[in-house]
C-alpha cells in the first residue's frame, strides 16, 4: 500500500501533477459539494453566459448528497455518490478551473481524457462510509441552489478526508489496474 499524502485545498496544477493513480491522500481545506441537479444548473448558467455562484478555480468538487444533520451534528451521513452521472457536466467545470473531483465508481473514457487535458484529478472516497466520512467534515453550509435540498451546492471544510487517486493527469485508471493487479497477484500465490 502506498504511503499517505497530505494535501491542502485548493489545489494548484503542480499539486495535481504530483499525484498518481493508487496514491492514498488525506485532504484538508475547502471542498465544494455538488451532485447531479446542481451540476445541471451550473452548466446551464455557464451556457447562458452568466457567472457561477461559486469560484471553481483550484477547487475540488465532492459528489455527495448528505442526509440532514441531527442537532449538534455538522452534517448527517455524507459519503460519495456514483460519479459517471456527472461526466456529462465535468468538462465545463474543468474549463472554469476545477482541479479535482471526489466521487465513487468509474469515469467514462472522455472524462478520463479531460482529466489529462485540463490538469485535473479524480479521487474516490469509499462508498457506503457515510457516517465515518461525516466525521471528517468540520463545517458545512449551503452556498447556492438551496431549493435543491440534498442536491444544493454546499461548501465544506474537511480535515484529513481520506481518498484514493483513480484517474491522474498521466491517463492512468486505478479502477482498471487494481483488480487486474490483484488477479495476477492471487494467481501467483
Amino acid at each position: 500500500m502506498s504511503e499517505l499524502i497530505r494535501l491542502q485545498t485548493p489545489l494548484t496544477e503542480e499539486d495535481v501533477r504530483r499525484l498518481h493513480a493508487g496514491d492514498r491522500v488525506l485532504i484538508s481545506g475547502p471542498l465544494i459539494g455538488a451532485r447531479d441537479a446542481a451540476h445541471r444548473r451550473l452548466v446551464e448558467t455557464l451556457k447562458r453566459g452568466e457567472p457561477l455562484p461559486v469560484d471553481l478555480r483550484g477547487q475540488v468538487v465532492y459528489y455527495t448528497g448528505p442526509s440532514p444533520a441531527r442537532e449538534g451534528q455538522v452534517i448527517g451521513a455524507a459519503g460519495p455518490t456514483t460519479s459517471i452521472r456527472i461526466d456529462a457536466y465535468s468538462e465545463y467545470l474543468m474549463q472554469q478551473g476545477m482541479r479535482g473531483m471526489i466521487g465513487k465508481g468509474n469515469r467514462g473514457p472522455q472524462c478520463i481524457e479531460w482529466v489529462q487535458k485540463y490538469g485535473c484529478v479524480y479521487f474516490a472516497a469509499i462508498g457506503g462510509l457515510g457516517a465515518l466520512l461525516s466525521q471528517r467534515i468540520r463545517v458545512a453550509k449551503v452556498v447556492a441552489y438551496e431549493d435543491l435540498g440534498t442536491e444544493a451546492v454546499r461548501l465544506y471544510e474537511v480535515e484529513d478526508f481520506p481518498v484514493v487517486v483513480i484517474n491522474d493527469v498521466y491517463g492512468r485508471d486505478f479502477y482498471r489496474e487494481a483488480p487486474q493487479q490483484w488477479r495476477s497477484l492471487a494467481a501467483a500465490r
Binding site: 455527495t64 448528497g65 448528505p66 442526509s67 441531527r70 451534528q73 448527517g76 451521513a77 455524507a78 459519503g79 455518490t81 469509499i126 462508498g127 457506503g128 462510509l129 457515510g130 457516517a131 465515518l132 461525516s134 466525521q135 440534498t150
Partner: peptide
C-alpha cells in the same frame, strides 16, 4: 465498513447518506 456500522448505530448517523 465495520467501523462505519458501529458509528452509525451508536451516534444515530445513517450508515449511508443514500
Amino acid at each position: 465498513i465495520l467501523e462505519n456500522a458501529t458509528l452509525a448505530r451508536t451516534q444515530m448517523i445513517p450508515i449511508c447518506q443514500d
